[in-house]
Design a protein around this nucleic acid. Structure first.
Lengths: 363, 363
DNA sequence: GGAAGCAATTAGATCGATCTAAATTCGCCT
DNA sequence: AGGCGAATTTAGATCGATCTAATTGCTTCC
């Protein structure tokens, strides 16, 4: 009646003000018919103290076997549910980690997420997810939000355009982090990434072996480290094999690319005969494009993608691709973060996954 | 030294026992150089009481303007960070919701997740994700885990094989929930789903209009409600148009299907001339299959998929598909859950998204 | 018998916020 | 000057766990 407001404010990580009527909030609280059963209730039921019950919870070797049994029985009969929130307040750790990605609906990232989940399962951690949509401002907001929720650490793929400020903020907030895929230059700390350059070089070698000479790189994205590495791989292979470098075709965020620029290349006296694509989705779009031009993928023109998404194998023709193993990257990152949580002071580690060239019929 | 154990036990939702050495745990705590700055520190700095500082936090109209300014300034200078965990303990709500899906790496689910995120952004909620891998046991474990983390509610796509027990458990745990896509029969509560049957019927009508007569359904999955609805749609359309029902081709979990069974159909005197697929990934796999048989998709044989994944548009030929709008489903589910949190007692709502037929060249 | 040692248990403080109920201050009116 | 209501502010309890620093029993040993 009075106090019929409730807000989330400026200090709670964003500028919005949201009023929730107190009445509803009160209703919301009474989740269950029974009043919540806490450790106190369990202790009383078992005829021991709160402290002992707590020790049983944590499987301490300090409690005697019969006592432990009694307490466990009490928990069972009362339907006790562990309240991690209360424990967290005291312990200052929550068993949650933040997963900060540019866009979960990107299959590459969602597979990475599955890898993180897999590893989390073993370490009893749980993921809070945040979408940055590749905006550094949004990223910063999301990080503060995660910090308020007391995540123990972050697995983060820095949004395009992030710089040292990101690392500074993470340090200021005291948040341990593992960077995945992309990385801020000179940042200390853990990194898990794939050696994209090496993957591209191997793919180029394969194309050269099978007689391709005019190889174009399609779908260069904004300049984050993972994108630069791919281009580097392409260029160093071009030099290594003494080929002519063709103009790089720019990519767009929706897995397409500058079709006109590519068409101009096809009109050259010596048109390209193969393409390395920034990722599988672009490669599959390219299939479409080539089809319209009446070219047969795999014979007239070789296409190699990157990522090895499930649909690469199911495409027609099946797509040769560089597997970047997102699931493994996610799993390694999660494991590395747990390691850092255990030993905050240990020096940063770099984990580089070597991509695998998966040969199929498109090359 | 003493107490050098720390465990997560039987009562903490799973049977595993994990010992973390206390020493590391202690280290882990000192996140920042500075001691954590709490509301008490802010209050002292601003020369007011804890209570007043708290009121400022929540933008209460009760505090006088000059006081509010002083407190805000103090927060700024001290670098105060809101501790939601502490607030949650008192308020008994966390601003987190659990998202329980069978597999996040499935593009359909990851897009749905993006939709949930989108809506959460508006309501200041944040997602904890859990993978069930379509196992009811795992699902039950994950739900208990989320409950321990005090999520306010759940958005859940019941694992294949779930039954009334799931609903009972959610009720017992006092967890408000919104079911998405699949649903337990006779469960009360909110549901967001797509009218798959209607989508399939429309696609069938389109095929019939364009002269197809022998239409096969490919990729029927295990029997959850969403799968059943698709089959229902297929069968009712078959009856409605007076067509002959062909044997349904079973699907597998990795987006493939029983190829042998389909090959047998092609050897019939009257082979099929069109297919409706359980989802786009199966349809794209089918492209491959048809290619091997030397059939041209779109002329010799029509293919219609379901979901409208980005790769459907980029496929060759572009895939006609039934858009099931996962992003919207996610957003609606998240909004509905917030509504339920505000008004726990209101009757359950069903939200049915009507799929859209997206015509492209494969049909 | 008393001290020492060990195993098992516990009282009470604590984490950092919110909520209740009461106290204080202020302006204004008689 | 005193009183009243409204506007501010605050003390203290509280949420449900963990952690510290004892305390309580028992053996055992001199």
């Amino acid at each position: 009646m009075k106090n019929d407001w409730r807000t989330v404010t400026f200090f709670c990580s964003n500028g919005k003000v949201i009023y929730l009527p107190m009445v509803s909030a009160g209703r919301m609280n009474k989740k269950v018919p029974a009043p919540t059963v806490s450790l106190i209730a369990v202790a009383k039921e078992a005829g021991v103290s709160r402290a002992t019950a707590s020790l049983v919870l944590r499987n301490s070797p300090l409690v005697a076997e019969p006592t432990r049994a009694r307490v466990k029985a009490a928990m069972e009969t009362l339907g006790y549910i562990y309240n991690r929130g209360a424990a967290n307040l005291r312990q200052n750790r929550t068993g949650t980690i933040g997963l900060v990605l540019s866009n979960i609906s990107n299959p590459f990232f969602s597979t990475l997420t599955a890898g993180v989940e897999e590893a989390n399962d073993a370490s009893e951690a749980i993921c809070l997810i945040a979408n940055t949509a590749d905006s550094p401002e949004r990223q910063s907001r999301q990080i503060r939000r995660l910090r308020e929720h007391n995540v123990d650490g972050l697995i983060i793929c820095p949004a395009i355009g992030s710089d040292q400020k990101l690392i500074d903020e993470l340090t200021r907030l005291g948040l341990p982090y593992v960077q995945v895929l992309r990385e801020i230059p000179y940042a200390s700390g853990d990194v898990v990434t794939a050696d994209y350059a090496l993957g591209i070089e191997r793919a180029m070698a394969h194309l050269v072996e099978t007689g391709r000479k005019r190889i174009v790189f399609i779908g260069a994205m904004e300049m984050h480290s993972a994108a630069l590495a791919r281009l580097d791989g392409y260029r160093s292979a071009i030099r290594h094999f003494g080929l002519e470098e063709l103009p790089v075709i720019a990519g767009t965020r929706d897995h397409r690319y500058d079709e006109e620029a590519l068409d101009r290349l096809f009109d050259l006296p010596e048109p390209p005969d193969a393409a390395i694509c920034y990722n599988d989705l672009i490669a599959l779009t390219l299939f479409h494009h080539l089809g319209r031009r009446g070219m047969i993928v795999g014979t007239d023109f070789a296409v190699i993608g990157m990522d090895n998404l499930p649909q690469a194998a199911a495409a027609y023709p099946p797509l040769t691709t560089i597997a970047t193993l997102p699931q493994r990257i996610g799993a390694v990152a999660a494991t590395l973060l747990q390691k850092r949580l255990m030993q905050p002071e240990r020096p940063g580690e770099r984990f580089v996954i070597t991509p695998e060239l998966v040969l199929r019929n498109s090359s």
